[in-house]
Design a protein around this nucleic acid. Structure first.
Length: 229
DNA sequence: ATCATGCCTTCCACCAGGAA
DNA sequence: TTCCTGGTGGAAGGCATGAT
């Protein structure tokens, strides 16, 4: 079956998309089957039908599990978002802050947390007293995987790669974008002791680059966004 | 290098439910 | 009633990985 063959939506079983979503989440058919209350052969069989429908292998064996094909990776955000919207549409639940008891996980840098959390906590205590927050350190410049894997509900930071992708996707209505919003603009400030060799005159880029630096890297990368800039 | 283990795929038989 | 679809359970076999 050619990969370019169009999908017959009239006969597409939405359960296959649930199987696909679960397999992509677990990267393991046995666990996916358990989560879906199916047997492993049933999931394998469902995958076969979806493979036939989409004309792509979707996942292939990789060690003790499976790894997705590029097509599956490209497809997954759309499928997941569609399933989520279906769930929201069919669910009578409406989020009422005053009655909510959710525990939200927020990923951000410590400086961002210092900027945002105090005011946020004030609002939550007043309007959603049952809601709790857990702030985890943000160690990546691209938080989409964190959000995909539901390790965080929200990521706050500067994400140039995400912004670039979102700009590109604005031309593609079929693409699913992550919800995003500009919160504030900020600028970086270089602070030094009075006796520092660079303190006597106007700081230049060359002077800054020539100075010795120490990087605190939560991610383990040997460079930071200031180096990139 | 060999073996054990875990996991996936394929095939088969059988069953249940729905449509024609 | 017959046919189709999709489920379960089981068996056989291939592949990757880790232990020995």
């Amino acid at each position: 079956m050619p990969a370019s063959r169009s999908l017959n939506f009239r006969t597409l079983d939405l359960n296959l998309l649930r199987v696909f979503d679960e397999v992509m989440s677990e990267r393991n058919l046995t666990r996916a089957a358990r989560n879906l209350s199916l047997t492993q052969p049933a999931v394998s069989n469902a995958l076969r039908r979806l493979r036939e429908a989409l004309g792509d292998e979707l996942v292939r064996r990789a060690g003790q599990g499976v790894e997705p094909t590029p097509r599956a990776l490209a497809l997954w955000p759309s499928v997941r978002e569609a399933l989520r919207q279906l769930q929201v549409s069919l669910s009578p639940n409406v989020f009422v802050p005053a009655e909510a008891g959710n525990a939200f996980v927020l990923a951000m840098a410590d400086a961002t947390a210092a900027e945002i959390i105090p005011g946020l906590v004030e609002i939550i205590e007043a309007e959603a007293p049952g809601v709790s927050l857990r702030v985890v350190p943000l160690t990546t410049r691209d938080p989409r995987r964190l959000l995909d894997e539901e390790q965080a509900d929200l990521a706050i930071g500067y994400f140039p790669a995400v912004l670039a992708d979102l700009t590109a996707r604005e031309q593609d209505e079929s693409a699913v974008a992550f919800g995003h919003e500009r919160l504030y603009d900020g600028q970086y400030v270089c602070v030094m002791r009075r006796e520092h060799p660079l303190a006597g005159e106007a700081l230049t880029l060359d002077g800054f680059c020539a100075a010795r630096h120490m990087l605190v890297s939560y991610s383990g990368r040997p460079y930071g966004f200031i180096d990139e800039a």
